[in-house]
Simulated assay, not measured.
Amino acid sequence: MATQQPVRVGVLLREWRQRRRLSQLDLALLADTSARHLSCVETGRARPSRTMVLRLSRALDIPLRERNTLLLAADYAPAYLESSLDDKTMASIRSALDTMLTAHEPYPAVVVDRQWNVVTGNQAMAVLMDGIPRHLLRPQANVYRLALHPDGLAARLVNLREVRALFLERLLRQVNATGDPQLRALYEEVRQYPSPADTEQADAEHPPSPIQVPLRVRTPHGELSMFSTMATFGAPADVTLSELAIELFYPLDEFTTNALRALEE
């Protein structure tokens, strides 16, 4: 039986270049090389050096995990470690995450990985996690399933259709930017979730907002309105660290501010 040949590094580089919608000349200029050499690399007529693989990876803004894949395809050792958050070397990272999450209370905050799986969160996340069934928490909670599954937060979202459209657009952009098959599978899954028409309230019931699509959630404490920002670690040198993101939620109105502060007290 014939064995499958490993994917050439040139093929992978061409896929990333096309994904970034760059010509060979565009990429050559960004990576300080010649279009002729790049063409030879992509067609397999030339083997790029380790330095060139990393230079092209930086020019293409390729995630660290895939940079390691490119290096392996070119018969080089990976350049980036992939550590567990439980490793001793990651103690300072764990401490920083704990500090950020705790300092953000009484407002919700959550740490997610590349596939939007929940790594950890602060105590204030309870207001969003209230009533989430066990099957959405196992084996690992995922932000998209928690938010859009009809058994999850979707049942309490006042503006579900708006949130659903925003989430799907954001996820599709990430799929197209990374080519990650797991993200593609997640997108195909959550886009099949229903979007009940009767979950939407008229915009006239809400005052103008500087945030196009806030998160409006029905709770026993009243309707809470929030928006979120994302934070990442600067200049990561570890695959795990490069794939972590912290989503920080903030109140959009005085009622939500007071309600979240009262819940903490």
Rank of each mutant, 00 (worst) to 15 (best):
A91S: 13
T102R: 14
M129T: 11
I211W: 12
G234Y: 12
L30H: 09
A91K: 11
R36H: 09
N117W: 10
L186Q: 01
R67H: 09
S209A: 11
V217C: 02
R36C: 02
L81Y: 04
L168M: 04
Y144Q: 01
L70Y: 03
S92H: 15
P207D: 14
M129G: 08
L25E: 14
L56K: 04
L244S: 03
S228T: 12
P208G: 07
C40W: 15
R67M: 11
A77Q: 12
R14G: 04
S57D: 02
V239M: 07
I93T: 11
Y250F: 14
D86M: 13
V213G: 02
L248M: 14
V7S: 13
T89D: 11
D203H: 15
R20E: 06
L244F: 02
E42C: 05
L153T: 00
Q201R: 14
Q5D: 14
R21T: 10
V112M: 13
A126K: 14
L13I: 10
T229S: 14
R156M: 04
R8F: 05
E243T: 11
H221I: 04
M230C: 08
P210G: 05
L183W: 05
Q24D: 02
I211K: 08
L146S: 03
P210L: 09
L30M: 13
E223L: 10
T69M: 08
Q212R: 15
L146R: 06
L60H: 05
R45Y: 01
S242N: 10
A141K: 03
E265Y: 12
E15L: 09
T51L: 15
S95C: 12
P78H: 04
L263G: 09
P63T: 09
H206L: 15
E105C: 05
L263P: 08
L25D: 13
E162V: 00
L171M: 08
R47E: 13
Q5F: 09
R114C: 11
E189Y: 05
L260C: 09
T99I: 10
E42I: 02
L136I: 09
S23N: 07
N117I: 08
L137C: 08
D238I: 06
T257I: 00
N122V: 06
R65P: 03
R8M: 13
R145N: 05
H221L: 12
V119T: 03
L70H: 02
M100I: 13
H135M: 07
Q5S: 15
E243V: 07
R36L: 10
L54N: 10
I132Y: 03
P208S: 10
L38W: 01
A155M: 03
D180C: 10
V163A: 07
D98M: 10
R67L: 06
V213H: 01
A35F: 02
T256F: 02
D98Q: 13
T256P: 03
P196V: 01
